[in-house]
């Protein structure tokens, strides 16, 4: 009897159910919106949180688990966004076809960076990816037949099998994508591949001595991160419906770094917490503070301070607050 009770209690401890709960929590915003409690702009902000979380999960696998840093993530996201807009709007391709190409083309470049990362360690890699991001941004500015240059490029909501999504439909779809992104991410890091990543992170030389092939796993890590970034980019394009070359600069890549670090490296759901802090908090809370709230700098200051403070004093990330609080409460109640 006690055992049965315990297993029912353990339902909440099951990670998959937790991930589905995260998705459902996001879905609650839909009835709130229809009841008129929250506005449509809040829905868009929460949709952005979802897509930033998706990209963050990929970055977390790369940075938190494989220990490889990239500052060119925004470039890939932008590339996928423009490709998706180009294929669906200019060429009138069905969304699924467009999806294959918009994810596939950036992957080829991702493999290239994986190969570069074989030759370059920690700090060098960040700088090299920074260079690649800048080159991609220059391409977005100059190649205006395809990107619309400085005047930007627009796209519509997703049209899947002749079914046209509206704002609420898109949001619901994104919440479902987030659940899948979390579960797939969880399965990757808990597989042999994930263990290989973590060994690689702690010591490359030791990992090689254990028979882990650097070529395979470094390239794989970049490909996984690229897939997540491109899907995030496509989601951005069909939610915000507009894209400028300047969107995909270093600032965006730094956002992802903030999301991963603040939320918690080495925790799959960490980026969701991170994205809530980095994207939703400045938009929904900080903007409403009188006088300083209107300055564009406040969100930057908030993120910057949060990154430094989290890394100095709480380097497992804000997601661990929940477990730490639980332990603390148990201690207080149990008296031990």
């Amino acid at each position: 009897m006690e055992k049965k009770l315990k297993s029912r209690f353990n339902l909440l401890e099951n990670v998959y159910i937790n991930y589905i709960l995260i998705g459902i929590l996001f879905l609650i915003a839909i009835p709130l919106n229809q009841a008129g409690i929250i506005g449509g702009s809040v829905l868009i902000t929460l949709g952005s949180v979802i897509l930033y979380s998706v990209v963050g999960i990929g970055m977390n696998i790369l940075l938190g688990y494989a220990g490889l840093i990239t500052l060119g993530g925004a470039g890939f996201m932008g590339l996928a966004a423009y490709l998706s807009a180009y294929f669906t709007r200019d060429l009138n391709m069905p969304f699924l076809f467009s999806l294959i190409f918009s994810v596939g083309i950036p992957i080829i470049i991702g493999i290239g960076i994986g190969l570069i990362s074989l030759r370059l360690g920690g700090y060098y890699l960040a700088i090299a990816t920074l260079g690649i991001g800048e080159v991609l941004k220059q391409v977005f500015i100059e190649y205006d037949v395809f990107t619309g240059g400085f005047s930007g490029k627009s796209a519509g909501y997703i049209n899947l099998f002749g079914l046209q999504f509206d704002r609420i439909g898109t949001y619901a779809l994104y919440a479902v994508i987030l659940i899948f992104a979390l579960i797939i991410g969880h399965n990757i890091v808990n597989s042999a591949t994930g263990r290989a990543f973590m060994t690689m992170r702690s010591s490359e030389a030791a990992a090689q001595a254990m028979g882990i092939r650097m070529l395979k796993y470094k390239v794989l890590a970049f490909v996984i991160a690229t897939i997540y970034s491109t899907i995030g980019g496509i989601m951005y394009m069909h939610l915000i419906k507009f894209s400028f070359p300047t969107t995909w600069g270093l600032g965006m890549s730094l956002n992802f770094l903030s999301i991963v670090v603040i939320g918690g490296m080495k925790a799959i759901a960490g980026p969701v917490v991170g994205a809530l802090f980095v994207i939703a908090f400045p938009d929904l809370v900080l903007k409403n503070i009188p006088i300083i709230g209107t300055s564009p700098g406040v969100a930057y200051i908030f993120n910057g301070v949060l990154i430094v403070v989290v890394l100095l004093f709480y380097n497992r990330g804000l997601i661990k607050i929940f477990t730490d609080a639980k332990v603390l409460i148990k201690k207080l109640i149990g008296g031990k």
Binding site: I69, G122, Y123, A126, L254, L257, S258, V261, Y300, I301, N303, G304, V305, L306, I307, V308, L311, L312
Partner: peptide, 10 residues
């Protein structure tokens, strides 16, 4: 490195 990026944001 990430801490210095935090300083950049700040």
């Amino acid at each position: 490195q990430i801490i210095t990026l935090g300083i950049v944001l700040f």
